[in-house]
Design a protein around this nucleic acid. Structure first.
Lengths: 138, 138
DNA sequence: AAAATTAAATTGCATTTTGCAAGTTAAAAT
DNA sequence: ATTTTAACTTGCAAAATGCAATTTAATTTT
């Protein structure tokens, strides 16, 4: 599967993490599950990032194999599935928060989400708690 | 340049960060600068990760353009260059630490660097301080 | 001072991954 | 029975990567 690269022999924890979630589309999917409350294939597609269906499918499968994402049928709509983060996936909240925090310092684009970013930076523990509780409102 | 993808219209801070440093080889280079004290092209090449010269060249250039890495001539060897992290690059320490921390929880490979990872997790502030002081001993 | 070595790339080319459009499968609504 | 919807899969062109060979510029060595 494409995301997976040759593993380093040396057990480096950075390389380990990168093999699991360290590519752009995987991170975008995790972000959408974590902060946007997305649950369906369709939602990911429609998020405006321009991910292709085959790549999305590939990444969801990869993340599922890696234990970051779980997939179940939607009990209310049998032609739909519900994707969600596992505990292992939610444990990536601190990584995401630090990325957001870094961007908050350096993102000078006119459309940067300054207010949101400041809230997250100044309230890391609460953000994490909210994500873990499934109470997403970012 | 290859690392750079279509930017999202929506100013998402996660996407912003990913465009700057969010690909495998960029992260590996940052790791080597941050935790291993690498400074030369040759050192990156010899690190055993199997990065190709063209890709390394591309990523160093990209990171330099992004202001993460700076490059100067080696005063003691005019055919060599010295690469180092900028302040902007060192500000990625928390991101790296959280990745390491996450991996520490989930990396079950026999060669995982458990001791090192635990030290880093339990001592985040000090790790950051050390990196900023250039006193790398990981 | 010519030849060899070293460091940091660049180039050419085969392989792999991505992006895009179209097609498929299975369930549900009309 | 036909159409619509959700989640894919497939085929193919374009882009990125990996690999080996070559280049450039500085430095030693002969």
């Amino acid at each position: 599967m494409s995301v997976q690269n040759k593993r380093s022999e040396y057990g480096c924890p950075v390389a380990f993490g990168l093999d699991v979630f360290g590519d752009k589309w995987s991170m975008i999917v995790i972000r959408d599950l974590m902060f946007r409350g997305f649950t369906t294939f369709k939602e990911f597609l429609g998020a405006g990032d321009g991910i292709a269906t085959n790549i999305l499918s590939n990444r969801l499968k990869h993340l599922e194999i890696q234990g970051i994402v779980k997939k179940k049928r939607d009990p209310e709509n049998a032609r739909s599935y519900i994707y969600s983060l596992t505990e292992k996936g939610r444990d990536l909240v601190p990584v995401m928060i630090e990325i957001v925090s870094w961007s908050g310092k350096y993102d000078d684009r006119p459309n940067a989400r300054r207010g949101l970013v400041e809230k997250i930076r100044n309230n890391r523990e609460n953000v994490e708690k909210k994500v873990r509780a499934g109470a997403i409102d970012f």
